[in-house]
């Protein structure tokens, strides 16, 4: 097969796939997008070199990974002893164990978000 033909087919396939992927997801809100939108307000307090403790829901481990992913290059650790905590809990949770001065707070249809200083 001619190299030109093969490479053309590959490039066309990549272009078509990318266009379809864009069309499918450009206006679709993933749960990560929802958390991202909710955390936008916290970014004025969280500087790129900040280090925070994270407090989430035990059965929803993804929250920690998402928060870290969305707040990079800040550093988030669950077991850390930092004085500032980013808390993401279910709206109706009974286990809100975070205490201190609430710097910022918001909520969406699933979670309540708080930035708390000890």
């Amino acid at each position: 097969m001619k190299a030109f033909t093969v490479i053309s087919i590959l490039l066309l396939s990549i272009a078509v796939s990318a266009a379809l992927h864009y069309q499918k997801f450009a206006h679709a809100e993933d749960e990560i997008d929802m958390v991202d939108n909710s955390l936008k307000g916290a970014r004025t307090f969280i500087k790129p070199n900040s280090r925070l403790r994270f407090s989430g829901e035990e059965e929803r481990m993804e929250l920690f990974a998402w928060a870290r992913y969305l707040q990079a290059p800040a550093v988030l650790e669950e077991q850390a002893n930092e004085d500032t905590t980013l808390s993401i809990k279910y709206l109706n949770t009974a286990k809100d164990d975070t205490t201190g001065h609430v710097l910022w707070e918001t909520s969406d249809k699933l979670y309540r978000y708080k930035l708390i200083v000890r």
Binding site: P48, F64, A72, P73, V75, E77, E78
Partner: peptide, 14 residues
């Protein structure tokens, strides 16, 4: 982030 990329090494969990 060219200034803070080394922060990735501070993440210990997962």
């Amino acid at each position: 982030d060219a200034d803070n990329w080394k922060n990735m090494f501070l993440n210990k969990e997962h």
